[in-house]
Design a binder for these strands. Structure first.
Length: 558
DNA sequence: ACGACAGCGCATCTTG
DNA sequence: CAAGATGCGC
DNA sequence: GTCGT
């Protein structure tokens, strides 16, 4: 049975978001009961929200009316805000040097072989290199840093030529041999690449990896080297930035609720299922949550599943109360591909160790995570899919052409793959992580109730912190809760702490009753349940409340 | 070039 | 005021 | 982001 299509299904669902430590319970209660007069209570708040209040930092705010499209883009930045923005490419031809900050070759001294620019192609390459700040030397002096060898020449030829024709005794100390591709690629990526890569080796030269093939080294050694050389710059701790909320840290833990379940049962005369449910919830509160059975299985689905997507794992039960579904054991069939979730990429655990594209995957993962953060669901999906196929690929993908052959990998990601292989990084990613607007936006987007539209709007208005928002912006009830619970609701699972998995998640209930044709009686039940759980202090905030006769769901936090 | 990529419940804003 | 549109989360 | 129209 499909989940979505049946309209008024006689079922009611409850989704509860448990907060990490239940420490802030007190604060929440405070929020709940003694909310400062400045703010009306988030329940039953009346439209005190006027769009055109005068408190905007930037009165000139441009209202973004289309939240889903590129019209969000107002600025020319390379960050999120310009996600859909086309590259403004400017061409230069007459000018000699590229802008100073792009002169990646500055300070470098290129010696070409053959050592002239008679060959038009070589001349072009030399000119290009000079544009990017290189100095072209025709003498094999000591300050030569790179000896750029035409691809037509072999190492043997070169040495012979150098010795016999040029009578060179010793090579410049710093100089390194590269083939003609090297400067080109460096320019392509605006960055000095690792000249020792095999692909830049002069034909016939002994490359490092040939001296020391991976197969002959201990796996551990290889791993160590990998860890050292491939490290990405440490990211700024994102956890610390959330601190500006009114996040008081009461470390005192409310260890035991006096199990109100029984009382409730007595008082309300409810039957066992409800009591069970209540008890269940409250006992499970601190426990690690089971993995959620997530229906999104990108790679396994694209290959073997049709859009039917028929499996509704929630089975029918005669019980009026559906308990949370048990964890579905990944059977021996274990091939379940859950690798595409960012949370599966533990910080310490070696990521898909044996895969030759591990590093590529790792970085693409970061891109995917990034887009997830900015709530670009389509790019997120796209990256997941691409990563999925890459994981199934057993050979190392090095070039864009190669990559683009693979399913779910198009031009853009293919190019990125090549860049990753070449530079061991992604400029797009680095920039995105740096861009201040993006950082602010990311912060806002983590607020429950704030999506791309509002988040970007606020960011563009110049708001920087959650305080700014609280002070200057009309927040919806949910957004206030979202800010108050900023840390708790941040469901994003930091890659660093796999263990944190247990502390962020949610609990879903599906309440049904056989022979029920409307949600009305169930709603009554739900209402009572929620009312009770709220009164006993278990539930602290209501985020979405059933409305109308055909309604069905309640969202809130405990 | 352009839309789909799931579709629905709830909250809120906009429009008439 | 109601109806429709939009934002958001799941 | 990719893919299909």
């Amino acid at each position: 049975m499909q989940r979505n299509h049946s309209a008024p299904q006689p079922s009611v669902s409850v989704s509860v978001k448990p907060n990490k430590p239940l420490t802030r319970k007190t604060s929440l209660l405070r929020y709940d009961t003694s909310t400062p007069p400045s703010e009306s209570s988030f329940t039953g708040k009346t439209p005190s929200v006027l769009p055109s209040s005068s408190q905007r930092p930037n009165p000139e705010r441009r209202v973004v009316s289309d939240p889903t499209g590129g019209s969000l883009v107002l600025k020319n930045s390379t960050g999120i805000a310009s996600m859909l923005q086309k590259n403004q490419k400017r061409k230069r031809e007459a000018i000699k040097l590229v802008p100073e900050d792009q002169q990646i070759f500055r300070g470098l001294d290129f010696f070409y072989l053959p050592a002239d620019d008679k060959n038009p192609k070589r001349k072009m390459r030399i000119t290009k290199a000079k544009e990017y700040g290189a100095k072209w030397t025709t003498e094999l002096e000591d300050d030569v840093t790179h000896i750029v060898v035409d691809n037509s020449l072999t190492y043997e030829h070169i040495m012979k030529y150098l010795k016999e024709t040029l009578k060179v005794q010793a090579l410049p100390k710093r100089a390194i041999f590269v083939n003609e591709d090297y400067p080109i690629d460096c320019i392509a990526f605006r960055r000095i690449l690792d000249a020792k890569q095999d692909k830049y080796a002069v034909k016939g030269a002994v490359t490092e990896s040939e001296e020391k093939p991976a197969s002959q080294r201990s796996p551990q050694a290889a791993q160590d080297e990998e860890d050292i050389s491939r490290r990405t710059p440490p990211r700024e701790d994102s956890a610390s930035q959330a601190r500006d909320v009114e996040g008081e840290e009461e470390t005192q833990e409310i260890s035991q609720n006096p199990s109100p379940a029984r009382n409730f049962q007595r008082e309300m005369g409810f039957n066992d299922p409800l009591a069970e449910m209540i008890e269940f919830v409250q006992t499970k509160k601190h426990l690690p949550l089971d993995d959620e059975e997530n229906e999104e299985r990108p790679s396994s689905r694209d290959s073997m599943q049709d859009p039917g997507d028929s499996d509704d794992s929630r089975e029918r039960s005669p019980s009026p109360v559906r308990k949370p579904s048990k964890k579905k054991h990944r059977g021996p069939k274990g091939s379940f591909n859950q690798n595409n979730f960012s949370c599966m990429t533990g910080g310490t655990g070696e990521t898909t160790s044996s895969n030759p594209n591990a590093r590529t995957i790792e970085i693409l993962q970061e891109m995917g995570d990034f887009y997830e953060q900015v709530k670009d669901q389509w790019r997120t999906r796209a990256y997941r899919m691409a990563i999925g196929t890459l994981k199934k690929t057993t050979n190392k993908i090095r070039t864009a052409e190669e990559a683009q052959e693979l399913p779910k990998i198009g031009k853009r990601i293919a190019d990125k793959i090549e860049e990753i292989v070449l530079t061991d990084g992604l400029r797009r990613l680095e920039f995105a992580k740096q861009d201040p607007t993006d950082r602010v936006l990311q912060k806002f987007l983590k607020i429950y109730g704030v999506g791309p539209s509002q988040g970007l709007r606020w960011a563009q208005q110049g708001h920087k912190t959650l305080e700014d928002l609280k002070a200057n912006v009309n927040l919806t009830a949910n957004q206030k809760i979202g800010i108050a619970h900023y840390d708790d609701f941040d469901t994003r699972i930091p890659r660093e702490e796999v263990t944190a998995l247990a502390s962020s998640g949610d609990i879903d209930f599906l309440i049904t009753k056989p022979s029920t044709t409307t949600t009305t009686p169930l709603l009554t039940f739900l209402d009572d349940l929620v009312r009770h759980l709220t009164s006993t202090g278990f539930l602290v905030a209501a985020l979405a409340v059933p409305r109308g006769d055909s309604s069905s769901k309640w969202h809130g936090a405990c």
